[in-house]
Design a protein around this nucleic acid. Sequence first.
DNA 1: CTACAATTGGAACAGATATTCCATCCGCCG
DNA 2: CGGCGGATGGAATATCTGTTCCAATTGTAG
Lengths: 278, 278
Amino acid sequence: MAERIGRANTSLTPAERRVAEVVLERPQLVAFGTVAELAEASSSGAATVVRLAGKLGFDGFTGLQASVQHALAGQLRPAAERIREPAATDAIGRHLQLEVDNVTSTLRALAGDALAEVVARVADPRSRVFVLSGDASLGVAKQLVGELASLRDGVALIEGNDVAVRRTVALLQATDTLLAIDLRRYDRWLIEAARSARAGGVWCAVITDSLLSPLAALADRTFTVAAAGGGPFDSHVGTLALANVLVAGVAHSLRADAAERLDRAESAWQASGALTDR
Amino acid sequence: MAERIGRANTSLTPAERRVAEVVLERPQLVAFGTVAELAEASSSGAATVVRLAGKLGFDGFTGLQASVQHALAGQLRPAAERIREPAATDAIGRHLQLEVDNVTSTLRALAGDALAEVVARVADPRSRVFVLSGDASLGVAKQLVGELASLRDGVALIEGNDVAVRRTVALLQATDTLLAIDLRRYDRWLIEAARSARAGGVWCAVITDSLLSPLAALADRTFTVAAAGGGPFDSHVGTLALANVLVAGVAHSLRADAAERLDRAESAWQASGALTDR
DNA sequence: CTACAATTGGAACAGATATTCCATCCGCCG
DNA sequence: CGGCGGATGGAATATCTGTTCCAATTGTAG
């Protein structure tokens, strides 16, 4: 089904695309429902639904429905019968378990009051926010910084060579907030940077892998994340999940201002046509 | 359903009992089939089927069918979604469910053969690997590029202004591999870049949010990710989980070479004392 | 701005389906 | 042995559903 829709992708009209979206997202509606219901759900006409089925190579809606029913029936067969799927699934399954566990452990361990305090500081427009990240988690740190910067001014990632980092750290003010992210096999430069920032009176929250981390020792608030990886590297899925919670909290806290900022960005994109829905 | 049949058990006639057995043993037949088919399967008449439905307290066969469909739909919803029963009220709990669902949906939808093909190409030292990412997912893209670059040479993120991007894309070779990452509200420049790369014969895999995405239309392989966010932004936790699977696959495929590379980096770190355990 | 093509959804139509009715059948009791 | 009541499935029917057609609309190229 997914394959058929993917193949027809380019030749679909707008209304047909709306129907296809519903087909992908709510297969039960196709399996159990009727043409009229599907049309209703996709804000289109019955004829459009039938036309889409035809374009996908089925013999009318009836054919499409039968196909979805087959797929669904296969899916709910007892797990014991489904085990004979390709061997690669096993590796995927291992990762699935691992990553779900990372997210679960990380967010379960997240204390509401600690979160609230960090959110409050990060959402406070009077203090600038700086993020420090170990090399291994640099990507997620950039993701975090990018999103925070969309919500407020004065958010920056501290990066670059040793000289640049030392300069930036030296120029921090006592009202600033520092967010340091680093996991086991800690980057020495980062610890030093955090320590000297702390010495300068900067309030400091830390995302790390253990309360025994050297970072935790010098932090005002510490979040621990689970980062078990299926490959040679740590997984930062849990870290990113935590970052998302933080971002959502800040967005909520700044809702009026943030919404206005996002709207401004949105208009700019719209005006220039930089973004597209299809 | 079983309960209703059990309660009516004594008052059922022989033919009705045959129908009831089929209802219990082959619920798909009830959910997807018709009165005639159910009658056929139980060697009885259509009228008997309808009478049974009435005796079970349903409003005709239609009511019985609707009930079975509901039960079936509940059974095939992802486990992550079923656990949602005690719907979380606190922000952290909501995020937990959301992110677990993102990871689960993304990795469940991951096809083993598609993954294997992409891993093979990304692990092939003869082809360079380029990554394109929409602005919203830039951080995770950098994370991916950083880890891939630790495993092999010739991995690069295509970024910068329009001029730089166009130049890089123009210089791609037919033996190169392109990995494009972009979700709904697609970046127009990215689609154009991918299209022109594709036109130049570059093999192209895509990570996006739907098979209906414009990117999917021009990809050789497409992965879809779930990205429901609790705040104003999409969550890229699922995307990162997928990236981790990809990286682990490549690492496994290159194990000898990759291990040697990682060892070299490790020695350099150790010699300089850049990393520390405490 | 106009003409043309594509798209779209409502309405008519044909087919299928659930329901109801009823003649037949079976088992049981007088 | 005969009559009776419940059970049963086939046939008629009314409803519903998928399909097709077409007029209105939208978008587009000249």
